[in-house]
Design a protein around this nucleic acid. Structure first.
Lengths: 189, 189
DNA sequence: TGTACATCAGTGAACGCGCGTTCACTGATGTAC
DNA sequence: TGTACATCAGTGAACGCGCGTTCACTGATGTAC
């Protein structure tokens, strides 16, 4: 069965996209290659024609997840109040409810750190987010701390059982971040 | 082989303690019961005389980890500048290097959230930390945002490959948190 | 124009492995008579 | 005091299962003659 010229590249992309979703939604370890391939209408044997190993897929999927998520943030930064819009989207109930479509840092970074394969890709994901923020805050260090708050808040909001507490986590982070931006702006003038 | 009266309770505690360390260090899914029991000089068959299931152990181990870690923070809060001491310990390279002895939130909460068994215990762990901080900051909402920053910063610092970036994450979080405390104190007077 | 062959994305059975869990058993000690 | 029995924490083989990975194969198409 011959396929169109870009068929294999297309399949490759489909695998990466699906993996990127599943890794974020269920976790890396919890995502099996067999179910993943089956969900795409493929058999698991073909996987190794596309990737050297599961770890290789993890790298590609993490990168894809970052690109995916960052496209959303870039849109947020195109608005009138970029930081406010960004914080609101990042800390929204929608983002909380759909880890599989969101930022890979809250979902994948802990597991990547524990696996021992802390790849430079995580650094890249973090740095690209940082650069977006730095343009607005003017401070790399402040942006870095803000990113910690964003990631921590989203992670915690997803792990508590009480919805009320979960909402409070998101709200308090948003308020504190906005106050920080405001304070920095006031200090500058 | 009869054992001293409290022998079984002792073994139970030893299993919980070891699990609490491993879950934090390697992750819940990545921790096998067989290796765990073997490390304690026991056979895996005996496990079910102590726990209904691995999930039951997870609950007990999470609670134990929280008690364990909180004891450290209470000591930090006994100092002259409680919040400063707390932030410094939480964001220290030592804490970063030893997840298995540290706060369970950065290591376990993401996985617990993904597993779908977001137990109320996470809420308890978070709340007890919150109460410690609230006494000093006077604001539950500010404390909650600070906790997000702490958890996010530690998680990210453990997942990046560059040590320099990792240090910057911890430093920026510490500085920002201290500045927040200072600003709140200034506003109050 | 028709036939033989090469290509190669995808197939699906099989590999060894470690997982969580079950269960019939062991054997040292305490108790009963 | 001595013997038979009950207790019960821990043993270790076995269960089915899904994992990541390997590999001989398929079969539709393009190319060569």
């Amino acid at each position: 069965m011959r396929y169109p010229e870009d068929h294999k590249a297309e399949t490759h992309k489909r695998i990466v996209a699906e993996a990127s979703r599943r890794f974020r939604g269920e976790g890396i370890d919890a995502t099996g290659l067999q179910p993943l391939m089956k969900a795409l209408g493929l058999t698991h044997g073909g996987f190794y024609a596309h990737f050297k190993s599961k770890d290789a897929l993890v790298e590609e999927a993490l990168q894809a997840a970052a690109n995916d998520a960052n496209a959303q943030w870039v849109k947020a930064f195109a608005k009138e109040q970029p930081l406010k819009t960004f914080f609101e989207r990042y800390l929204s109930p929608q983002h909380r409810a759909h880890p599989e479509q969101g930022c890979p840092l809250p979902t994948m970074s802990a597991e990547l750190g524990q696996r021992g394969n802390a790849s430079p890709i995580t650094d890249g994901v973090l740095t690209s987010l940082l650069e977006l923020m730095e343009k607005e805050t003017g401070s790399a260090e402040q942006s870095l701390a803000m990113l910690s708050t964003l990631v921590g808040a989203l992670t915690l909001s997803r792990s508590v059982a009480s919805e009320e507490l979960s909402d409070r986590i998101l709200d308090s982070a948003r308020q504190t971040l906005l106050a920080q931006v405001e304070a920095a702006r006031a200090a500058r003038t």
